[in-house]
Design a protein around this nucleic acid. Structure first.
Lengths: 156, 156
DNA sequence: GTTCTTGCAAACCCTTTGCACGTCT
DNA sequence: AGACGTGCAAAGGGTTTGCAAGAAC
């Protein structure tokens, strides 16, 4: 599974630039959140992150988590997804640029993949309507080959 | 804008089959909901439908709306989408089979489109992982060519 | 008559907000 | 010092649930 080397320092620089440009302040909490997200290195919900950070001894509130996730999404360091469930999920954009998701309809397990041709398709569709592409979200819902043998299904 | 002729009677037959197979009961409310959805003939949220039906004089509760939307989604008569906002949006699958959505990042206006090649791509990706495709959701976020002239933006 | 479904309201979950206190500049 | 950010708890919006009354079987 490809994963672009996630350079935390580079992300912090990116975040600092954004904060400066928008006249937001450099707070410990904001950089701490980014650090922990890089540690996680996977999809997470706001609450996942809250419990992860609490478990690591960080004293942080949900309000700060949500606020920081919002900032990180605005500056494109994070990608925000709405999968089937209730809560939004986030992940580092740099982790795997422009990848999409194959979601198992049996167990909800998410496989990430990259399909170059989709970019051409996106370009073509946007051109057709005169729009300028920003980002996309492609989710394929599919059934795994053998439900009984599905290791992810077993975990539940 | 293409729109497959939505034959309400056909949908009701489909729904009846599903209810029978699953041993759910044929209630007036369930068919009334389907009728009203066909009348609407566009994307809607649970609350949109609730207010539409209330306005039409139907005495129906949100509980029934949600429950029926769930059933209609389970039997694939409805497609459930999670766009950016808070609430889930639904639409008849038959209205425009397998279409996708181009969402304006400026005003949130949604354009529907159909791109045949995506099906091939979906097929290829699923084959690669040994999965059997069920459905997909592709959302392109893009900026409209002229924000100032955007008729949808003006409406806000 | 029994079981399922409905309507209502309360509960629920995720997220946002108001406020007092703390931190950054 | 002043303005912004944080933590907490309460509020908010969408959705689900418990329960009594009603409809389907």
């Amino acid at each position: 599974m490809p994963s672009a080397a996630t350079d935390v320092d580079e992300l912090k620089r990116q975040f600092a630039d954004f904060l400066k440009k928008k006249n937001y302040r450099n707070t410990q909490e904001r950089y701490r959140v980014l650090d922990r997200i890089a540690e996680l290195d996977k999809h997470f919900s706001a609450d996942d992150l809250y419990f992860y950070m609490s478990g690591k001894g960080d004293r942080i509130s949900r309000a700060t988590i949500y606020s920081t996730l919002d900032l990180l999404t605005k500056c494109a360091i994070l990608m925000k997804h709405r999968f089937q469930g209730d809560s939004a999920h986030f992940e580092l954009s740099s982790r795997m640029p422009d990848h999409d998701h194959l979601i198992c309809v049996e167990c909800g397990h998410i496989i990430e993949f990259y399909e170059k041709e989709l970019e051409d398709l996106q370009e073509r569709v946007c051109k057709q309507f005169g729009f300028k592409p920003v980002k996309h979200s492609w989710q394929i819902f599919a059934a795994c080959p053998d439900i009984a043998a599905c290791e992810f299904n077993k975990q539940k």
